[in-house]
Simulated assay, not measured.
Amino acid sequence: MTNADLLNSPRGFFLSFEGSEGCGKSTQIHLLRERLEAAGKRVEVLREPGGTAVGEEIRHLLQHAKAGEGMTPEAELLLFAASRAQIVREKIRPLLAGGTFVILDRFLDSTTVYQGMARGLPLESVRAINAFATGGTLPELTLVLDMDPACAYQRIHATGRELDRMESQPLAFFEKVRAGYRQLAQAEPERLRLLDAARTPETIHSEIWDLIQSRHHAV
């Protein structure tokens, strides 16, 4: 596709999913992608951190590399921001300009909640770094899957697989995460919608589909 084609194409839709580990984001993203593609939409699912070659290297350092075990909250914040700056410019903006429905598994709200509210970094600094990284590119709708931290904690520990750095945090950390997301949803009700993640996947998906139809009339 040429630059002229990009400029003349109808703009896409940018949607992000948020929530604590174990809340069911992956399931809902999968269901939504299938339904959108069945409706004839071009869909791209990306993840944060990651989504680009640079971002995937950062993801490994943040989540799995032994070198990341002693990482400070400040370094963690800046690495997430670096991955975000890359994916916005390399992937999200061109995809939206080309009319693609972009679904992101986590975006800037994760950093506000995890590094700001749960890690305790100054929120003004977190927001300023997020703003620099995104350059004004924000989701049109953010769906927060809200679940009791103890239930989510049990889910991730019941998988039997090796947990990454973020999943290995204590329950008290995830309680702060949930409170943080609820605070954000209350502060930005037009963009962030809180969904009860304790319900069946089908019920949650139905609510998500209704929300998207109300925001994106081409679906």
Score class of each variant (00 low, 15 high):
Gly40Gln: 11
Asp5Ile: 05
Glu90Tyr: 06
Ser9Arg: 14
Arg47Trp: 02
Leu123Trp: 12
Leu192Asn: 09
Ala158Met: 10
Tyr114Ser: 04
Ser206Glu: 15
Pro139Leu: 05
Ala82Trp: 10
Arg11Asp: 02
Ile204Met: 05
Glu21Trp: 01
Thr112Leu: 14
Leu138Gln: 13
Gly51Lys: 02
Glu44Asp: 10
Val43Asp: 01
Ser26Ile: 04
Ala53Gln: 11
Glu56Asn: 09
Arg33Thr: 11
Ala218Gln: 11
Pro170Cys: 07
Thr111Tyr: 01
Phe132Arg: 11
Pro94His: 07
Arg35Ala: 13
Ala85Asp: 08
Leu121Thr: 02
Ile103Glu: 00
Gly50Asp: 02
Thr2Glu: 07
Leu104Cys: 15
Ile87Val: 15
Arg193Tyr: 04
Leu123His: 06
Leu96Ala: 09
Val54Glu: 06
Phe107Val: 05
Leu95Arg: 06
Leu123Lys: 07
Arg155Leu: 10
Gly24Arg: 01
Glu34Leu: 09
Glu76Tyr: 11
Gly24Pro: 05
Gln169Leu: 07
Ala75Thr: 15
Arg165Glu: 05
Thr134Asp: 12
Val88Cys: 13
Leu15Arg: 04
Glu74Thr: 15
Asp148Lys: 10
Arg178Ile: 06
Ser9Glu: 10
Leu104Ala: 12
Leu141Met: 08
Gln213Phe: 00
Gln63Tyr: 09
Val102Lys: 02
Leu46Gly: 01
Gly19Trp: 07
Glu162Val: 13
Ile92Phe: 05
Arg47Met: 07
His60Phe: 06
Gln183Asp: 08
Leu32Asn: 02
Ser83Pro: 05
His30Ile: 05
Ala128Gly: 06
Lys176Trp: 05
His64Leu: 11
Met71Leu: 15
Asp109Ala: 12
Ala81Ile: 05
Arg178Glu: 01
Gln28Phe: 09
Asn8Trp: 09
Ile208Val: 14
His217Met: 04
